[in-house]
């Protein structure tokens, strides 16, 4: 069974306007479960756009998306949000942590709308922070963190809803080589935990890593 399947996906921005731009040209792709897939390509090749479509963050202009063989392309926003929350965990290039609140609060944030009890949620967040050697920083504010700590906090936040798929967009873009390797090690551990991982990156440390099972190369909105 395919985890995610894209069928002839096209994504056009600013449609009908003078600045119309086609980011994805009819891409079909299957993502296998429990594997690490890397999307490789230069800036503007459509990696991030494809990743947002895979993660139910954006809708394609045309084409179909299947999640566990169920078509989700035309689901209303509410259902897509719920699928996104339960199935995917996201790590962004800039980490996008919320300043002024603690590491623990940032980690718990994606689970708040789910209505889980605060105590249980806090316990799980602490366990994840412990796994990522961040429990000592739980009550620190995120702006006091180092680059590596901020990145691990972003990973912990992505894991709080126990997603089956992790999506990371240029996760090593702001990290030095050592921290980039550390990131890939964490991804290796998550793969062992049977997570499906999708990473968009043009960093050789990512696509040359042993953790990565499959590298998909993109250019000008097409898979090459």
């Amino acid at each position: 069974m395919n985890m995610i399947q894209l069928l002839n996906i096209r994504k056009v921005f600013n449609m009908g306007r003078p600045n119309e731009f086609t980011a994805i040209h009819g891409v079909s792709l299957s993502i296998h479960p429990h594997q690490v897939t890397a999307l490789k390509g230069p800036s503007g090749s459509g990696k991030t756009t494809l990743l947002s479509i895979l993660g139910c963050m954006a809708r394609p202009t045309s084409g179909r998306i299947m999640l566990f063989d169920r078509e989700i392309t035309s689901l209303p926003e509410r259902f897509l949000t719920e699928i996104r929350r339960k199935t995917f965990g996201f790590v962004f290039q800039q980490f996008h942590l919320i300043k002024g609140i603690t590491v623990l609060e940032n980690v718990m944030l994606p689970a708040y709308p789910g209505g889980e009890g605060y105590g249980a949620l806090r316990k799980r967040a602490m366990e994840i922070l412990d796994l990522l050697s961040l429990s000592k920083k739980a009550s620190s504010r995120v702006e006091w963190l180092s680059g590596g700590e901020a990145q691990r906090t972003a990973i912990a936040r992505a894991l709080i809803n126990r997603p089956s798929v992790m999506i990371a967009d240029e996760p090593t873009g702001h990290l030095d080589s050592r921290l980039s390797q550390e990131f890939m090690q964490i991804m290796g551990r998550l793969k062992q935990d049977r997570k499906t991982i999708l990473i968009a990156s043009h960093d050789p440390i990512v696509h040359e890593s042993e953790t990565v099972d499959r590298v998909i190369e993109m250019r000008d909105g097409r898979i090459i």
């Binding site: 300043k99 002024g100 609140i101 609060e105 718990m108 944030l109 689970a111 708040y112 709308p113 789910g114 209505g115 889980e116 009890g117 605060y118 949620l121």
Partner: peptide, 21 residues
């Protein structure tokens, strides 16, 4: 569950308010 959701969101709201003290 509904109450927990409100509680969690209020909790975040309060810490949000404190951030812009």
């Amino acid at each position: 569950m509904w109450i927990e959701k409100q509680g969690n969101i209020i909790d975040f709201t309060l810490s949000s308010l404190l951030r812009r003290k």
